[in-house]
């Protein structure tokens, strides 16, 4: 059992590379925000309050087209629905005695990567670990967006293209290391790649929006994996 203090510093340390990756990704988000007409302060708060790459892109598109607010709500619900699932999963990694206010703070920043390090922390994940990780990621994500609004247009297009690969590099870095230990995960990841790519080509499924397709595929593939290869108790711990 580690102390609260050492858990906090561990979180800071694990958050740092995520924060650097966030900075690169949110910089390209800031360029989009600029094109939509947002200023740097609006870009800062957009990222500070939302902490979501796909969700923020969807929101910027809604701002650009002046979509009705009802449509915005639906769009964000769909774009961020995976965080609902991640929040359910993370609830199982916290101590059952953890008070509600800690849960409400942890819930604020359930992102793909922070969820990834939160669920892979040995059970139970302490709040101090998550707060440490928040401290090195949230400011980077917000600052990157603001800077993208201010300085985005000085970069050549090819550099912006390259920067947009950063988020996928981060996704891969969350899922691949555990797959080295558990070959079933490696197989699952490769199947997911294949099915997702195939689904984007099928006439029926490719007609769905990107975020809806992600939700459907996530639930179907995960449920199939859970049925075909239910985990043993020790794997979940």
């Amino acid at each position: 059992m580690q102390t609260t203090r050492s858990e906090f510093f561990q979180g800071l340390k694990h958050g740092l590379p995520i924060g650097l990756g966030y900075f690169a990704v949110s910089f390209s988000l800031g360029i989009t925000a600029r094109n939509v007409g947002l200023n740097a302060v609006q870009g800062l708060f957009l990222s500070l309050l939302n902490n979501a790459s796909a969700g923020e892109y969807a929101g910027l598109e809604a701002i650009r087209t002046q979509a009705p607010l009802v449509e915005l709500v639906l769009l964000i619900l769909i774009a961020n629905a995976r965080y609902f699932l991640m929040s359910c999963a993370l609830s199982q990694r916290l101590s059952p005695t953890l008070p509600w206010y800690h849960r409400m703070l942890i819930g604020f920043d359930i992102t793909d990567e922070l969820f990834g390090i939160g669920v892979t922390h040995p059970y139970p994940t302490p709040p101090s670990y998550m707060y440490g990780a928040f401290l090195t990621t949230i400011p980077m994500w917000a600052a990157g967006t603001a800077l993208g609004v201010v300085a985005g247009n000085v970069l050549p297009a090819v550099v912006v293209t390259a920067l947009s690969a950063a988020i996928y590099g981060m996704f891969i870095a969350v899922i691949i290391p555990p797959a080295r230990e558990d070959k079933a995960l490696l197989v699952l990841i490769l199947i997911s790649f294949g099915v997702s790519w195939g689904a984007s080509l099928l006439p029926l499924l490719s007609g769905l929006s990107e975020s809806l397709r992600i939700i459907i595929l996530t639930l179907v593939i995960s449920a199939a994996a859970a049925l075909l290869r239910p985990v043993k108790e020790e794997e979940v711990r």
């Binding site: 991640m86 999963a89 899922i175 699952l188 790649f193 997702s196 992600i214 996530t218 049925l227 985990v231």
Partner: peptide, 20 residues
């Protein structure tokens, strides 16, 4: 089943978000 679903879920969702 629910525990297994939650275990696999992050790997699947990040995979399908990356490809294509």
């Amino acid at each position: 089943f629910v525990r297994s679903l939650f275990y696999y879920l992050p790997y699947v969702t990040l995979s399908v978000m990356t490809v294509p």
